[in-house]
């Protein structure tokens, strides 16, 4: 996806065990910070109203 021009910080992968709630909180905070720094996603949103 990075190769196609999606900013690398728009896609995250992680591995958290069900017992690691602290890690979960850490990762959520970290990702949120990174995405905030990146700003809104503008390029990949479909602009017109969706025709279902």
């Amino acid at each position: 996806m990075e190769y196609m021009g999606v900013e690398p910080d728009r896609l995250h992968f992680s591995w958290i065990s069900s017992a690691e709630s602290t890690k979960f909180v850490e990762v959520v905070s970290e990702i949120t910070e990174k995405v905030k720094a990146l700003g809104p996603n503008t390029h990949y949103v479909k602009k017109e109203a969706k025709v279902a």
Binding site: E2, Y3, M4, G5, V6, E7, P8, H43
Partner: peptide, 15 residues
């Protein structure tokens, strides 16, 4: 060649 571009260039390239 494409890998060496930055994110914005790549996006434009594929567009």
């Amino acid at each position: 060649e494409i890998e060496e571009m930055d994110t914005e260039q790549r996006r434009r390239f594929f567009e």
